[in-house]
Amino acid sequence: MDVNGRGKVWLFGDDIDTDVILPGKYLVLTDPNEMAKHALEGLVEGFSKKIAKGDIIVAGKNFGCGSSREHAPLALKYAGVGAVVARSFSRIFFRNAINIGLPAVISEDARDVLREGEVISIDLKGGYIQRRNGEKLPVGGYPQFLLEILNDGGLLQNLKKRVKKEKRK
């Protein structure tokens, strides 16, 4: 999987919590495609239908605060979200997003600078967001082992690879 995303910007505010990303009543779902239908429905009606594959959420501080539900990043990913950029993340959401292969990207300035609907691309290795006018915004880097998990498409694929290696030994 290519961890570098390109897509249209959807702006959100501070402290977007997991109950808004996917309400508790949907936690009985185990099919991510079903979860996706309800992603962010309390804030943007029909969000999952309105977004295009690869679109990028750009938010303020403390994105994903609240519950440990992995259903939240799964719902976003299967709705088509290519990456979430935020000033800061709640730690469990940050880990969950990477573990399911959804890049969670920290940028101090993106929320203030970027405009709703503009198309940006993210270069994780290079460590920047690029706007169409050529402007680059720096993003926080990942330690190597996290980049590997993202490159593998998530922790599950990464685990499969590691189990295979173990078996070969």
Binding site: S67, S68, N96, L155
Partner: peptide
């Protein structure tokens, strides 16, 4: 579960993680 942090009240280091990490 995110409220695993409760158990720090007993002098443990206790924290919430996601389901895939738990599989690991």
């Amino acid at each position: 579960d995110s409220h695993t942090c409760s158990l720090g009240a007993l002098g443990a280091f206790a924290t919430g993680i996601g389901s895939t990490e738990m599989a690991a």
